[in-house]
Simulated scan of single mutants.
Amino acid sequence: MYEERPARLDGAVVWSNSPTAQGFRPVLPDGCMDLIWADGRLLVAGPDTRAYVPEGPAARYAGVRFAPGDAPTVLGVEASALRDLRVDLGDLWGARTARRLADGVTGAPDRGTALETLVLRRASDAPAPDPLLRAVVARLRAGASVGVAADTVGLGARQLHRRSLVAFGYGPKTLARILRLRRALDLAAAGMPYAEAALRAGCADQAHLAREMRALTGTTLTAYLAAVP
């Protein structure tokens, strides 16, 4: 069963998941990075450009999902270095530190809260999130084009692309596609007809949405929405 709640870290989400024997939905691209506890290990999930399906999934998960662009300063790694990867936290912070932190989360009465506290401590010593990139995310989520988002915050195309690689792991056009797909999925999951969801999300038509779904996730809207959570 999957559950989530807003984190005390601005824009982040604390989540937990215990996949059922019947299966679970693949993890779709969302523009975010996560710090994850998985059966006693701490992992960092980099930004995805395609659906991720764990091989031999853990029985229990807890995680903190950062707002798009916020994780690199907290975790101390550029997002592009972890694109489409899951890495052990020890690879970033050292094996001894990662093991100590993982043991602390494992022994906590609420692992999600323990992860949240860990992240808050790290964030207190890290630079603040880039306000320009936060504004770009807000514009793209609202359906603005990359050009309009860049002009709004006063960044040139090359500047925005370079800063996007560091913060999001890929360029702003890829981020825009992913956020548009997430809008469409949310609308379709709420019961809106696919054709209407496509238009409301910013796709040209339902066929455009179907192509984007296949390209970014490798599956279809119907198959994804019918999958066991």
Rank of each mutant, 00 (worst) to 15 (best):
Y2I: 07
E3A: 09
R5A: 14
D10A: 14
G11S: 02
V14F: 05
W15R: 07
W15Q: 05
S16Q: 08
T20R: 13
Q22S: 13
R25Y: 04
R25W: 07
L28P: 03
L28H: 10
P29W: 08
D30G: 09
C32S: 08
L35H: 03
I36N: 00
W37T: 07
D39P: 12
T49L: 13
T49P: 01
R50M: 07
R50S: 13
R50Q: 14
V53C: 04
V53M: 09
P54E: 10
R60T: 11
Y61S: 04
Y61N: 06
A67G: 03
G69L: 05
G69Q: 04
T73H: 03
S80T: 02
A81M: 09
R83P: 02
W93N: 01
A95L: 14
R96F: 11
R100I: 00
R100G: 02
G104N: 10
P109I: 01
P109T: 06
G112V: 04
A114T: 04
L115V: 11
L120S: 05
R122K: 10
A123Q: 00
S124Y: 02
A128C: 09
P129C: 09
P129M: 08
P131R: 11
L132N: 04
L133R: 03
A138Q: 09
L140E: 07
S145D: 08
V146L: 08
G147L: 02
A157G: 00
A157Q: 08
R158Q: 14
L160E: 08
R162H: 14
S164W: 04
P172G: 10
K173D: 12
T174E: 14
L175N: 04
D186F: 04
A188F: 00
P193D: 03
Y194T: 13
E196I: 13
A198R: 13
A201S: 12
A201T: 06
A204Y: 09
A204L: 13
Q206I: 05
E212K: 09
M213T: 15
A215W: 04
A215E: 12
T217N: 09
T217Q: 13
L221H: 10
L221N: 06
A226C: 03
A227H: 03
